[in-house]
Design a protein around this nucleic acid. Sequence first.
RNA 1: UCCUCAGUAGCUCAAUGGCAGAGCAUCCGGCUGUUAACCGGAGGGUUGUAGGUUCGAGUCCUACCUGAGGAGCCA
Length: 450
Amino acid sequence: MEATQTQTQSAAPVTSIAQIGTRDGQEVTIRGWLYNLRESGKLLFPIFRDGTGTIQGVMPKSAVPAETFEGVKHLTQESAVVVTGKVRADKRAPGGYELDVSDVQIVQRVPEDDPFPISLKEHGVDFLMEHRHLWVRTPRQAAILRTRAEIIKAARDFFDDRGFTLTDPPILTPAACEGTTTLFPVDYFDEQAFLTQSGQLYIEATAMALGKVYSFGPTFRAEKSKTRRHLTEFWMVEPEVAYATLDDLMQLAEEFISFIVTRCLERRRADLQTIGRDTSKLENIKPPFPRITYDEAVEILNKGLAEGKLENKFQWGGDFGSPDETYISSQFDRPVMVHRYPAAVKAFYMEPDPKRPELALCVDVLAPEGYGEIIGGSQRMGSYELLLKRIHEHGLPESAFKWYLDLRKYGGVPHSGFGMGIERAVAWICGLEHVRETIPFPRMLHRLYP
RNA sequence: UCCUCAGUAGCUCAAUGGCAGAGCAUCCGGCUGUUAACCGGAGGGUUGUAGGUUCGAGUCCUACCUGAGGAGCCA
């Protein structure tokens, strides 16, 4: 399995497969891997990939040296190769171009007695997850990862271009941010620490320093969730804005989501096609998004029950379950913003609605097509006294929140923010069945390898 | 934590309680336009583990292990 040091002797310029259309008729070099090999008598059709795409090579036995032909004829899937050939437009080729191969240098040959495990046929989920480090090489997974990168870049561009400052919250924290979910404990020099479940409390502090801020980073939840929407380690982008109200926040959220979707349609359309996404469902993701109150959402559920489209009666005061969210979002053709939930089912730090104090000034954005909640946000509580009371009510240690309370003591202002789960956004935009495909190495209940 | 389903060749799956099979992958052979190529041949098995019922168990029963889907919780 030794890797030979290959000197690319050819004068042909190294080109990416994605850019090969600009080199029609020219001699180029591609550095990549053998994706597949078909043959027909004295004619070989090796398909190469380089991370940007795939292209079929054509090799008649008569056109290349005998040793080159024999070397490629017995080449194994995923062997590393440096290929030189002439680009030729061909209507028969899926990408529009083929490569008339003149030379193939084998950088590393996969042994035939231990072949690449992921063949081109279908595989089961468990097998693919065990081989995630190799699964990411397949065209569909590569397209998803490129789209994830585009979504992250779009999110950061959106905030950077609007005067937000990126401020990174800590990952090791002394206490729960929200006090609700189970955290991963960490030994911190004989002190108890936890992996963060949200950067929100910390960016409230930096928002008071810088006005408009956001964070982008990993978060951790030790919940034993086993669904297509949950990971134990996932990435969130969280903006926080001083002086912003709930209405300001909802406007920000709809502009944010629209920007990201539009960007993906502009720049990753080919990848979305590879993934098999019906992009027509993304075309109308533009402001304004429907805004409904929690009360109106409950009415929708009750009506759905009366029409026999839902099974269980929904009691006012509870949080929506997954089937409830799916039904509510199915009534709209774009993300729906549900605001003003009962304070009792939401986190301790949310500002009460002055008109109805039993409600919180919060919003959940439910993605279409049953993808559920992709954004959760709120106007933050302003009153020092009420915040202290809520901390006690939730059984949280006051000492750990002293600094957070300080934010209300020293120049407290109305402020609002939300968090968007990157993986759920990727799953929705790519139209995936499960969030496990949205991140290079998903961490789930009982899955820590590879 | 609870409910449901599934573990058979490297992979995807068949097999009425009665000889453990196919396709793909690998190897050998054939084919000058293949599109998950095709055609012919070869090798490849402690049927998740442990026990039980039976003349006989991949198949039926019990326990356990592993995985998947869902609930709860959440983004």
